[in-house]
């Protein structure tokens, strides 16, 4: 049951990255693939009705983490205090820029919000990537499980590289979205950008995979759980798909391949971490696992039921709405 809670959380956070990932990634490449006002209006309009719903996944995952593993929620957010506050400010700037850009037909107004949107998106991905890197590597925690390091500690080469990989991988995802959803020059430029982005993703991801073996121990045993090998296989297949479908020129499949790549990467990160939610440093054991302060059976049963039933209902009406719209 507690393993199920871990899986549910990993799943909710992954869905957040997959969905908000394309609109964050679109932001990161916004200034390069869309060059004039009408192109920029078209690219931002392609995510207009979606970005807010995508961000709800972050809120829902945060609330679920809070309910199931309050000590992890408390230690992680108070430990990453300053970077996390910056994340919150960037989320605000980005949402405002996206929604208000169109309100005045003025170049100054729109230019300001275009740059804000792009910069905030890129920085957000970088910071969230650095956070993920630090979680994978482990952070120093005291006896009461609170953060015992410094801001500087969080800016280590491994975590920074995960941040860079996140920027590259989500830019690739955003480019695939633009190629699928926007017509004309922005789509062409996105496909051109993928020529550069995808090889970089491949390079950094390969190096980081080996680096992860070094920073994180113990590693999951493929022999004990052969199924978890599916995660790296999926990400490899996804990345091959990204290269292949760019050449064959089928953007829809390119986007799906990019989704598969990200899902595989996130699943790999989750199986690497399990059962840790916040490993310690230098040894993982001083950290928090899903079993450190486990939710009571009542709380676990209630939360899992409430969250899963709720998500099924959401998926149901979302599918209904999408079907009605596409008719």
């Amino acid at each position: 049951m507690i393993a199920l809670a871990f899986v549910l959380l990993a799943l909710m956070l992954s869905v957040y990255v997959l969905l908000d990932g394309y609109d964050l990634g679109l932001g990161a490449i916004h200034l390069f693939v869309a060059r004039n006002d009408s192109e920029r209006a078209a690219t931002t309009a392609s995510i207009g009705p979606f970005w807010n719903g995508n961000e709800v996944w972050l809120i829902a995952a945060g609330g679920t983490l809070f309910a199931l593993f309050p000590q992890v929620y408390a230690s992680a957010f108070s430990g990453f205090y300053l970077p996390f506050m910056i994340v919150l400010w960037l989320l605000m700037f980005r949402g405002i820029a996206l929604e208000l850009r169109g309100h005045f037909p003025s170049d100054l107004w729109r230019g300001f919000f275009d740059v804000t949107f792009a910069a905030a998106s890129a920085l957000l991905i970088l910071l969230l990537g650095i956070a993920l890197g630090n979680v994978l590597r482990g952070v120093p925690l005291d006896a009461a499980h609170y953060f015992a390091g410094t801001f500087g500690f969080l800016l280590n080469p491994y975590a920074l590289s995960v941040g860079v990989l996140a920027v590259l991988a989500l830019s690739q995802h955003g480019a695939a979205w633009v190629a699928t959803r926007v017509d004309g020059l922005p789509a062409d430029r996105s496909l051109a950008a993928l020529r550069v982005l995808s090889p970089l993703v491949l390079g950094v991801a390969s190096v980081l995979t080996f680096a992860t073996f070094r920073v994180h121990s113990p590693l999951p045993s493929f022999r004990a759980m052969p199924l978890i090998a599916l995660a790296p296989i999926a990400s490899t297949a996804g990345l091959i798909g990204v290269f292949f479908f760019r050449v064959t020129g089928s953007p829809r499949r390119l986007f799906d391949a990019s989704t598969l790549f990200l899902a595989g990467m996130l699943a790999s990160a989750a199986v690497t971490l399990y059962p840790y939610l916040l490993p310690g440093y230098p040894s993982a054991e001083s950290g928090l696992t899903a079993y450190s302060n486990p939710p009571s059976p009542t709380a676990l049963g209630t939360t899992l039921t409430v969250v899963i039933v709720g998500l099924v209902v959401v998926a149901g009406y979302r599918a209904f709405v999408v079907k009605r719209l596409s008719r």
Binding site: I59, G62, G63, F66, A67, P70, V307, V314
Partner: peptide, 13 residues
């Protein structure tokens, strides 16, 4: 959190 987190998760979902 075991209680306060509950309505916050439900609010999102």
């Amino acid at each position: 959190g075991a209680i306060v987190g509950q309505p916050l998760a439900m609010e999102g979902i």
